[in-house]
Amino acid sequence: MSRIDLKRLILGDKQADRVVPPSGFTAQLTIFAAAAMAFLAVFAMALSLASGRLAARWGNELAQSSTIRIVAPLDQRQAQTDAALRILETTAGVAYARALDDAEQQALLAPWFGADLDLQALPVPQLIEVIEEDTGFDAAGLRLRLAAEVPGAVLDDHSRWRAPLVAAANRLRLLGWISAVLLGASVAVMVTLAANTALAANAQVIAVLRLVGATDRYIAQAFIRRFTLRAFGGAIIGIALAMAAVSFLPKASDTAGFLTGLGFQGWHWFLPFLIPVLSALVAFVATGTAAKRALKRLA
């Protein structure tokens, strides 16, 4: 079907379009199925993009820092903090480390204890922020050294709880794209079935067209154009409804959870417009293949 005249396919030919009789059932079936698949594809795309954003955010935060807590009696806390910092200076993979000052620690606790908290009145551990290099550091080795030289130090490696979440978000993103691909395949199957039905129902028309000198290319084009336009039109309806539905979802916010971020952001709003084009492309290939087989069978 590579020789199909693209210009004629897009612009159409009024006479040629009338040659194949209109078939209400397959037309409605194709438009409805394309609309439904496009509607679902928009949500799969939104889910995938939201998961991607989540994975990226968690991944970036994971890469940023680790924390060491110094839990020691007040008179030993500064000495142990200095010891921990010395160890960190000589640890490969640590880009930067610093002890948080009292104001910073107070700010961290303010949501729970209020802004007037006296740190000296509570056994609050000293926190050390550790910034890693891209290569990261050997967390197990660092723990061993800290245990030997700084008994009150506890390394909080964020990857323990963030890594599975990032993996889950990435899997969710992958599932979203797999769903979109499966929806595309479903469109192809549905269009193939509808096209086969239409071709079989029009066997007599095809015989007459052949009798008067119509080539297989001409006959196939009449069917391909029809199904391609139906799939495109149905997908337009589907994405219009889906984007309206997505726009009514709650907007993403820092305080809310993952579900409030399920939608499109920025230029991602333009991505669903690819779906009708892809849907038409799938219908074009599926009908072309079905027509080629059917015309060979009917020869």
Binding site: A16, V19, P22, V205, V208, L211, G213
Partner: peptide
Amino acid sequence: RRRMGVVHQDCRFLDHLTVSENIALPLTAS
């Protein structure tokens, strides 16, 4: 086949087209 004209006993028309469209069908198909 475009260089030949074929007439069948059962005529073999496309019933959803008018008579003039059926007669013009070889032109359309070409």
